[in-house]
Amino acid sequence: MKVKEIIQLTEATLVCGEGRLNDEVEKAFSSDLMSDVLTIDSEDILLITGLANTQSIRTAEMADIHFILLVRNKKATPEMIELAHEIGIVLMETPFSLFKTSGILYESGLKPVY
């Protein structure tokens, strides 16, 4: 699934990663707990989370995750956007809940990590 399709399906706003709309994402993982995210073996997944602070970006950096979708209408802080730019992470915001977002993207073909 392309980044632009994720944005379209979840009515999301892109806050970092202009020029990456055609990047392909195959799998996703939904969690607010970063220690759980750090146990995932797959790289290059989409992280769907309600955690809107710098630790979600740092976690993605350590786990080689390049796509983050913030749910529940959480807004990325300026520090998060700056860090996402620096590391090269595509950062999006959706007004939908974690459950709704995950359901829509799963139904549309995004695969689970396990």
């Binding site: 607010d32 707990l33 220690s35």
Partner: peptide
């Protein structure tokens, strides 16, 4: 916990 940690997984993640 609000920072996304504190679930008692840190040390086992380190060990792994």
């Amino acid at each position: 916990r609000e920072m996304g940690f504190g679930a008692g997984m840190g040390l086992s993640n380190i060990r792994r």
